[in-house]
């Protein structure tokens, strides 16, 4: 085999590997979804429709960023409380701000503080009490539900300050809404956090081989706590954006993100075992899931059928990349 042939082969292999890359795969799925949508409902693949998808996907994208970090950290790490924490954040911001712009900053700080404390609770439960993350964060859902009840008396008051709504819904160049820009900033920050900081390297180290990470001097417990605090802060931010979009809080506004955030992470190519993956995939995963949702709305299927189709598409998406190693390997 001469050099030219070899180079050709190498390029072919590289191209194939690139096609198998989760981010590329998800992008291809995205294109396919838009194409299919355009056939079913002409105009679905327009630029306006795409920006609309991005605008809503931002909430999932931000919440799923925290989920990505927790899952990357391995040890069966998972955060089922992100949805409820985001809901709590919407309630806090609405109640503290009472819809007034001058109280917005105070409301945001309060929401980050309270939600961060809940993340701290998750982290302590997982790291020090050694409760499996799945049940710890699940138990936390019950606790936060109770806290929201106490905090709001079951009927959250207040609404989104005009400034927050403007920030999230405001139209900028090309009809792109504010939430998309905020998400972009969050995404760049998250990728930097994971790739460019010591914290990020530790997350990957913990996920890849916890024992080795510990032996090389990483404080396991403290870093585990940080993972869950980070996740709760992202969830809080996602909740704030959602409040800006929805206008008013309710006791279950963001609950739906509990499991769909995990789906976004997995579709984006991050393995639930930890250590492999990244935020770019999750972001594309969030867009794919939101596109699917919009498509189902456009297709106007009755509720029962929509749920079934939703589940089936999710399975198809997962089987594209969410698959585990085969046994015979």
């Amino acid at each position: 085999m001469n050099t030219a042939q070899l180079r050709e082969r190498m390029q072919a292999v590289e191209a194939r590997d690139l096609l198998r890359h989760p981010v590329v795969l998800s992008l291809l799925v995205l294109v396919a979804l838009f194409a299919a949508g355009n056939v079913a409902a002409p105009g679905f693949a327009s630029f306006g429709s795409l920006t609309n998808v991005l605008r809503i996907a931002a909430f999932l994208g931000v919440i799923a960023a925290g989920q990505t970090i927790v899952i990357l950290g391995g040890g069966e790490g998972i955060d089922l409380s992100v949805g409820k924490i985001a809901t709590f954040s919407t309630v806090i911001v609405a109640q503290v701000s009472q819809g007034q712009d001058e109280r917005l900053l105070l409301a945001i700080v309060t929401a980050f503080a309270y939600c961060g404390l809940i993340g701290l609770g998750n982290g302590i439960g997982v790291a020090y009490l050694r409760i499996p993350p799945l049940v710890m964060t699940l138990g936390m859902v019950g606790v936060v539900t109770g806290i929201i009840r106490v905090y709001s008396g079951g009927q959250p008051e207040g609404r989104a300050p005009a400034m927050l709504s403007a920030l999230v819904n405001g139209t900028t160049v090309g009809g792109i809404r504010g939430s998309v820009w905020i998400w972009l900033v969050v995404a760049v920050f998250t990728i930097w956090l994971l790739r460019g900081t010591t914290f990020g390297r530790r997350v990957y180290a913990l996920g890849a081989n916890r024992r080795a990470a510990e032996l090389s001097g990483i404080n396991l417990q403290r870093n585990l706590v940080l993972l869950y605090v980070a996740s709760s802060l992202y969830a809080a931010l996602g909740g704030m954006l959602l409040l800006g979009f929805a206008g008013a809080a309710s006791i279950n506004l963001a609950d739906q993100y509990q499991l769909i955030s995990i789906a976004a992470v997995v579709i984006g190519g991050t393995t639930l075992a930890g250590g492999v993956g990244g935020y770019l995939g999750t972001a594309v995963g969030a867009v794919v899931l939101q596109t699917m949702r919009n498509l189902l709305i456009v297709l106007d299927i009755p509720a029962a059928g929509r749920q079934v189709v939703n589940g089936i598409i999710l399975i198809v998406l997962l089987s594209l990349y969410g698959r585990q190693r085969r046994l015979r390997q």
């Binding site: 998972i78 799945l134 499991l259 995990i262 789906a263 997995v266 393995t271 639930l272 589940g311 089936i312 999710l314 399975i315 997962l318 089987s319 969410g322 698959r323 585990q324 190693r325 085969r326």
Partner: peptide, 11 residues
């Protein structure tokens, strides 16, 4: 199909 159980059964 070897999907991860948490997400497969969620779907």
């Amino acid at each position: 199909v070897r999907l991860q159980p948490i997400v497969a059964t969620f779907a």
